[in-house]
Nucleic acid binder design. Sequence first.
DNA 1: CTGAAAGCGCTAACAA
DNA 2: TTGTTAGCGCTTTCAG
Lengths: 334, 334
Amino acid sequence: MVTIYDIAKIAGCSPTTVSKVFNDYSDVSPKTRAKILETAEQLGYLPNAHARSLTMKRSWTIGVLFNEPSGAGILHPYFAGVIEGFKKVSTSKGYDLMFVTKDIGGKKSGYVEHCKIRGVDGVVVILPDYGDPYFQELLDSDIPCVLLDQESEQKSTICSDNIAGAMQAVEYLHRLGHRRIGHIGGGHSFAGEKRLQGYLRAMENLNLPVEPQYVIQGSYDYTMESGQAAMEELLLTDELPTAVFAAGDNLAVGAMMTLKKRGLRVPDDISLIGFDDIEMVKFLTPALTTVRQDTYALGSKAADMLIYTIEGGSGVQTAMLPVEIVIRESCRSL
Amino acid sequence: MVTIYDIAKIAGCSPTTVSKVFNDYSDVSPKTRAKILETAEQLGYLPNAHARSLTMKRSWTIGVLFNEPSGAGILHPYFAGVIEGFKKVSTSKGYDLMFVTKDIGGKKSGYVEHCKIRGVDGVVVILPDYGDPYFQELLDSDIPCVLLDQESEQKSTICSDNIAGAMQAVEYLHRLGHRRIGHIGGGHSFAGEKRLQGYLRAMENLNLPVEPQYVIQGSYDYTMESGQAAMEELLLTDELPTAVFAAGDNLAVGAMMTLKKRGLRVPDDISLIGFDDIEMVKFLTPALTTVRQDTYALGSKAADMLIYTIEGGSGVQTAMLPVEIVIRESCRSL
DNA sequence: CTGAAAGCGCTAACAA
DNA sequence: TTGTTAGCGCTTTCAG
C-alpha cells in the first residue's frame, strides 16, 4: 500500500505537503503540487479512509436504517425509490451509504451503538418499526438523523403531503359524481393515518356522509394480500360504495383482484384510486388512477437535509413534498 | 469519547490488557477481565471501528455492488431477496454492508478505487452492467468477490439452476399436453441465456419443433413493459402457441396483460408460465404458475462463499441452487 | 510556501 | 499474566 510518506519521499517533500495537496490547501506552490500529483499518479496512490476518519473524527459515511424483517423492508417500492434518490445526492457530496442494523458483530446491541462504533456521520431512517425501543434510543441520541414518513420534534423529518393527496383523491371522485366513497386504510402507520385524515376531511368539506362500514383498515404493511382482505370485508356491506380510495397502490391492486374474482368490474361497477404510483400499476387493466408520490425527490431532499445537519446546520427541519394525482382508467364518471 | 486508555487508567491496568479482553485473548486473569468489563460498561465504552481497521488492515465491511441506474437495480425483487439473505448471514458474522459505486467523493473513479479507499474486505456483485470496464477492472483485481448470475474464472459465482428450471417449465407444459410452446426470453443476460438454453434443450429432448417465430427476446431488464411488447409480437404469428414460457415473472405479467387486453384468456386460450416467483404473482388472476428461485438462499450462500474467501479460503468456488416449479392457475391441460 | 511533531484509538510483538 | 513500545496512515497546529 502506498502512503503519503512514499509520495513525500519520491517527490522530495514532506508528508504534510502531500496531505495539503490532497486536501486542496492553497498554500502549496504550483510546482510542488504538480510534482506531488504526478508521483501520486505514478505510484497509484489511494487515500486510506480509515486513517482519515480516525484523525478527522468524520467518516463520510451515512447509515441507512430500514425495517429489518424483509417483509415490508427493502422489498417495498417506496424504499427503493427513496434510497435511490438519497444515494444519488449523498454520493455526489462524498458520502457512502452503509446499512445499519440492530446487530453488530453478531450480537444484538442496538442502532446507536452500531452507529457509534462505525462512526457514521448521520443516518437516514426509512420505514422503521415505530415502537422499537432501539429506534427510540436513536431518536434520543445526538446522532444527526432524517426520518421519512414520521413525526418528531427531535429529528428532521420529511414526507409527502399525504393529507392533501388523500383529499385530492376524494375530490376527484366527487367531481366524477361519486358520493358513496369508501376507504381502505394503511393501518396505524404515519402515512396511513394522514391519508385517513385527508379522506375524512375531504368528505366533510364536500358534505359527504362517512359510513363507518365503508372505512376499512388494511394492515400497516400495505400488502396486496391486505388489500384483498379489506375489499372482501367491504363487499359484505349491503349497499356498495361506488368508489374506493385505497391508501396504497398495493392495497388497491389487492382490492382490484378481489373485485375481479367476485365478478365486479373496475371501473364499471366500482371505481378505484390508489396512492404511490408504483411502477406496475400503469400496466394493470384497467391502469390504476393514483396519487403519485415522488419517492426519488423525497430521497434526495432527505439527503440534503441530513447533510445540512451533519455539516453543522442547526435546528430540526421539516419538509413536505407535494403529490399529484395521475389519472388513468380505474375511475369512471357517474 | 471513551477509549481503552480511559478504561486502563480506571481499571488500573494497561491499554494492552484492555484490548486483549475485547479480543477474547485467553491470557487475562478472570479478575482483571471482570474489572475491565465492568469499568468499560460504566464508562459506556464503544470500540472505534476505524482505529481497529487501521491497525488490522481489515474493515469488517463488505461492499454491495449493483446496477446503478435505478431502473433494473434495487427496485427488482430479485435484488431485494438476495440482499436480504446476504445481509442476514454477513451481519451475523460481524460484517457490515456498504454500497459501492463508481463515484467516490463526487468524482467518477471506479469500483476498485472505491473499494480500496474504503478498505472493504470483499464485494458482492448483483446485477452489474456486464460490459462496464469498471466492472472488468474489479474482476481483474485481487479483491475478494462473489458474483451472482454470472460466469467467471476469476471470481466465485453463484446462480440458480436456470437451465433445469427452464427445462422443468417446458416439460411441465408438455405433460399438460402442450406441443406448440413459445418463449419470451430475458435478452442477453446470463440468466436469460441459460433459460433460453433450457427451453431449447427441453424442446429438443421432447422432440418438439422450435418455431423461430415463437421465440421472442424480451429486453434484458425483465420489465412488464418488455413482456407486453414481446407478447404483442408473438400475437402477430398466424397460429398462436398454446403455451408460453416467460424467462421472468415480470415478463409473464406483461404478457398476461397484453393477452387480456386482446381479449385472450389465460389459461383458456393460452397457458403461461413464468420464472422467479416474485411476491405479486400469486395474487394475480389467474395466479401465475412459475419457477421459483430462492433468492434468500442465493444471498446467504453467496455470503458464505465470500466470507470464506475473505477469511483466507482459496480457490474460485461455484454454486448452483436448485429451483422448483410452483403450480398455480395459469396453465391448463389440453 | 514548507515541514517537524504530535496524536486520532487500536493492535501486536516482545519483554518482563 | 501483564505492560512497554512501536506502529497503522492521515491531519493539524505551529514554527520556520
